[in-house]
Design a protein around this nucleic acid. Sequence first.
RNA 1: GCCCAGGUAGUGUAGAGGCCUAUCAUGAUGCCCUGUCACGGCAUCGACACGGAUUCGAAUUCCGUCCUGGGCGCCA
Length: 429
Amino acid sequence: MRTPINEVTPDTERAEIAGWVHEIRDLGGLTFFLIRDRTGIIQVTVVKKKVSEAVLQAAKTVSRESVVRVSGAVKPIEKAPGGRELTPETFEIISLCESPLPLDVVEKVPAELETRLDARFLDVRKPRVAAIFKIRSAVTAATYDFFSKRGYYNITTPKVVAAATEGGTELFPIAYFEKEAFLNQSPQLYKQMMMAAGFEKVFEIGPIFRAEEHNTLRHLNEATSIDVEVSFADHKDVMKVLEDLVSHQYAVVADTCSDALADLGVDFEVPKAPFPRIPYADAIDIAAKKIDEPIAYGDDLSTPSERAIGEEMGEHYFIVDWPSSIRPYYAMPYEDDPSICKAFDMMHPRMELSSGAQRVHQYDLLVEQIKAKGLSPESFEFYLQPFKYGMPPHSGWGMGMERLIMTMLDLPNIREAVLFPRDRHRVVP
RNA sequence: GCCCAGGUAGUGUAGAGGCCUAUCAUGAUGCCCUGUCACGGCAUCGACACGGAUUCGAAUUCCGUCCUGGGCGCCA
C-alpha cells in the first residue's frame, strides 16, 4: 500500500512510497536518492554492498524525474530531510525518464517563463510552482463555500454567444455551423437575465475571453472571472460582499495553505473589511499630485496613475462615484447627479481586481443610456427584452481570479497564476 | 494597435569586427569516491534562429523573414 511521503515520519517502521526521482547523489559505495510526490520529499539511501542485485540494478539504471516505487525500512536520521530515510528492499522503475530534461526541475539553473510554459507539466513538478495552484484551488473552494453559505445560486452561462456584452473589448469570432458566433467576454448579461428570472443572488466562476492584442504582465486572452449579481441590492451592498469575499479568501489561504505559502516564501496580512472607499475625483487628485503627465477629471485612469494611487493607499481599496461618461451604459447614474454613477472598481495597490456597479434596471433609462453611448438599441434587443417584463433593481461585479492570485502571492507575471495561459502568442500547450 | 528590446549547447549565460574550431554554470556519459544534502575530483559530449549584404575576415555591422520579451493604450 502506497503511503504519501509526508505521512512517512521518523517513527514509521516500514513504508512503500511512489513518486518522481528528484535528485541522485552517487557517492560511490553509497547513493542517495530524493523521491518526491505532491506531498513532500524523502531520502532513499542505497548502500551498494547491502542491497539485493535487483535494487542495485534499478539504482544504477534510474534517471532523474523517473517514476519509481520503493519500499523498505524507515529509520530516523537527523541529517536527512524530514528527519528520516528509507532503505530500499524493493526499487521498481515504473516509468524511466528521458534526458536531457527540457528544464531543470531542481532549479539549479533557472528557466525563462516561455521555456517553463512550453513544458508546463514539468515546470509544475517544482514544489514552488505547484504551491501556486494548491493555493488557487483553495481560493476556488473558499469562494464556492462563501457563496453557498450565503444562499447564492451557482449558475453556468454560455461561453458561445451571438453578440458582444458591452461593445468595448474585442471578441474572438468562431464558426458556429452556418452562423457567426463569439466567445463570451463576460457573463454580465446572463447574470442580469437571471435577475429577471427571479434568482435574486447568483454567482459563477468561469472563463472569459478577450481578443485584445495586449502584451503585458497582467492581461490574458482567456481569464477566469468570479462573477456575482444580486437583486434588490445597491452598489454598496455588493461592495460589501466583494470585500468580505476577498478577506475570506485570504483568511482561508492563511489558515489552510501554510506549507504552500512557505514554499513560495509568501507572507501576507489578511485584508480587513471594510476597504477604504475613495471617490474617483479624489483618486484623480492623488494621481495628479504624484505624476507628471496631465490628468483631467473624466479621464480613464492610466496605468501610472493607477500605480500612484495604489502606492498612496497601500492596501485594497475601492474607487467609487465614477463619471458616467467613462462607464458602460448599464451603470446606474445617481438620481441627484447623473454625471456620476454607482459604479466601482476594487483595487489592489498593484492593479485593478474587480469592477462592478448598480445596474440600470429601468427599460426606458437603459435605452436612453445605450443611445447616449452612440450604440443602437436594436442590436441589444435580446439583452433589453428581460427589462420589459419585471426586472428588479440589482447590482453586481466581476473579479479576475488570476489577478487575485497574482496579487495575493506577489507573482511578477499573471501567467504564473494560470496552468496553461492563453496570451497574444500562445495557444499551446 | 503604437513604441522599445532581444534570439548563442537540453537549461541559464559570457561575448561588442581577427584574441571564437565561442566562456562559465547546470546537465548527460565514463572513471574514482560509504553519509551526501547545490556532495567532491578527472575526462568527454553538446550552441551562434533563418536568408541575404558589407568586409581580406561577421556570433558581433546592415537589410529582410520568422520567433520572442517588455512598455503603453484598453481592461479583469
